[in-house]
Structure formats: structure tokens, C-alpha cells
């Protein structure tokens, strides 16, 4: 059975690119348009991985990571940030919030798949 991934980004273009990349490798992908939408979709089921942008309306990526880590089904699930933010300060905040890793855009499809395979074990 294919592993499930929740892809959260307010940009339709980015969501399509990420989905296309992940689906081409056989993953099942669910899209969410911001942190709030992502949290609502995550609560309904247990995704194997969450991949989220940082700067989004309503709820940003770091707030989403913190909220997910408070849910029993996402205590240990991998959560990756995929964002244009590249400062050490933001990465530290991501680590403190409970993110598993930090990918800086623009994303490279083969590299994204490599990281996804690694964190999914």
C-alpha cells in the first residue's frame, strides 16, 4: 500500500509541482491550501508524512508543525518544511517547533524524493 503524504502550500503552482513529483514516485498525495486547512485534513486521518510551506495565510507552517506535534498520531511522524525561508534563525525555530527537516525552495524534484524516502524509512 502506498504511503500517504499531506502537502500544504498556499501556492497552487507549488502544490501541483510537489504533487506531481510525489505521485510520480507512487505516493498518495492530499493537498491543503494553508496551515488551517492542513490541520483539519490531518486530524481526519494519519498521514505518513506532512510537507509544509512556511508563509501562508490563516496559519503558517511553524504553527501547523506545533499543532500537529500536539496530536497523538503526529507525535513522531516526519514533518518537513519546504519554504523560501533560508535563515538559520528560521531553521532553528523549525527545529524547536518539531520539524524533521528543512528544505529551501526552489525544490529539486529528485532531491525532494531522496529526502522523502529517507525520512519515511
Amino acid at each position: 500500500m502506498s504511503k500517504s503524504i499531506l502537502a500544504v502550500d498556499d501556492s497552487t503552482t507549488i502544490r501541483q509541482m510537489v504533487s506531481l513529483t510525489l505521485k510520480s514516485a507512487g505516493y498518495e498525495v492530499t493537498e491543503a491550501v494553508d496551515g488551517q486547512d492542513g490541520l483539519a485534513k490531518a486530524k481526519g486521518r494519519s498521514f505518513n508524512l506532512v510537507l509544509t510551506d512556511q508563509n501562508m495565510p490563516r496559519m503558517d507552517g511553524l504553527s501547523l508543525v506545533k499543532s500537529l506535534r500536539g496530536l497523538p498520531e503526529y507525535k513522531t511522524a516526519p514533518i518537513l518544511m519546504l519554504t523560501t525561508e533560508s535563515s538559520d534563525e528560521m531553521k532553528s525555530k523549525g527545529r524547536a517547533a518539531g520539524a524533521t527537516g528543512w528544505l529551501v525552495k526552489p525544490f529539486d524534484p529528485p532531491r525532494l524524493l531522496e529526502v522523502v524516502r529517507k525520512v519515511l524509512g
Binding site: 531553521k91 523549525g94 520539524a99 527537516g101 528543512w102 529551501v104 525552495k105 529539486d108 532531491r111 525520512v119
Partner: peptide
């Protein structure tokens, strides 16, 4: 130019 950003895993 390389079109791909840095990756850092925290684990």
C-alpha cells in the same frame, strides 16, 4: 545556476 535549495535534516 543550480535550481534547487539546501536541505537540512534535524534527525
Amino acid at each position: 545556476r543550480k535550481v534547487g535549495g539546501d536541505v537540512e535534516l534535524f534527525v
